[in-house]
Design a binder for these strands. Structure first.
Length: 255
DNA sequence: CCCTGATTCGC
DNA sequence: GCGAATCAGG
């Protein structure tokens, strides 16, 4: 996979939006987390709270650590044209690339309670789906990206840890990355599924906010503990079940 | 363990 | 230029 302009743009945008390298890599597809990081650095996209502390050269270094034979790394303090991006226009971004459609879970949990026929399975769909005309939905899940909020008067607010000068004008970016809207930034998309996050779908495919649970899986299962509870339910003996099994989406597509 | 980003270095 | 391997902090 090569770094096309589009992919680079996506990388830049997501990187600056605070997405992790892993997220970016999965969203782009075909590249590893390392590749993303490497590319980001080559693009001089650094500037991001890294878990690994940059040792203070002044504080107490010395040469004890020979590892520190870093050539002249320009001590640039100047921050690159930072984000400051006002919430970019939505426009539900189609995945930048056809996703390997395989994420369909095996036990087939139903996302759409066809009709609450019968009793037992009280549908416990996680909220979502309904109405929500409001684009600025409250970030129910952990907001990862460093989002700036708009204060009174249209001032950009900075997160506590943020060091970007607020003066930075928003670059006229009209490009639409994989995750255009901030409210989608912390939702797990199809592209971000991996072996250790819960693949339980929330909402309905095709809807703008359709996403996946994204929690950590119950080891050995494709879902988190809570959703395993929904996916795997004890089956009553035999013929005790009059009503036909509730199939998702009206059952397997007949074709 | 898991995650993260940074750096190195062979290709 | 690229990215796997490696490192290192949380």
């Amino acid at each position: 996979m090569s770094w096309t302009d589009e992919r680079i743009e996506t990388l830049k945008t997501m990187w600056e939006a605070g997405q992790t390298a892993s997220q970016i890599a999965e969203a782009l597809g075909g590249v590893s987390r390392n590749a993303v990081i490497g590319k980001a650095h080559r693009l001089e996209l650094q500037a991001r709270p890294s878990p690994v502390k940059p040792n203070d050269p002044d504080a107490k270094n010395a040469e004890a650590k020979a590892v520190e034979a870093r050539p002249a790394e320009s001590p640039v303090v100047d921050t690159p044209p930072a984000v400051a991006a006002e919430p970019v226009a939505a426009a539900p971004a189609p995945a930048p690339e056809p996703a390997p459609v395989a994420a369909a879970p095996e036990p087939a949990p139903r996302t759409a309670p066809v009709a609450a026929d019968a009793d037992e399975d009280a549908d416990e769909d996680e909220d979502e789906d309904d109405d929500a005309v409001e684009p600025a939905a409250a970030p129910v899940r952990a907001p990862q990206p460093i989002l700036r909020s708009i204060g009174p008067g249209g001032f950009l607010r900075q997160a506590p840890g943020e060091q970007q000068p607020p003066s930075t004008p928003a670059p006229p970016r009209r490009l639409v990355p994989a995750k255009p809207s901030p409210e989608m930034a912390d939702k797990t998309s199809l592209l971000e599924l991996n072996d250790r996050i819960c693949k339980w779908p929330l909402g309905h495919p095709g809807e703008p906010d359709f996403h996946f649970c994204g929690d950590k899986v119950n080891p050995g299962f494709p879902y988190c503990v809570a959703h395993c509870g929904h996916a795997y339910q004890a089956q009553l003996p035999r013929r005790d079940r009059r009503p036909t099994p509730p199939l998702p989406f009206g059952g397997p597509r007949a074709r």
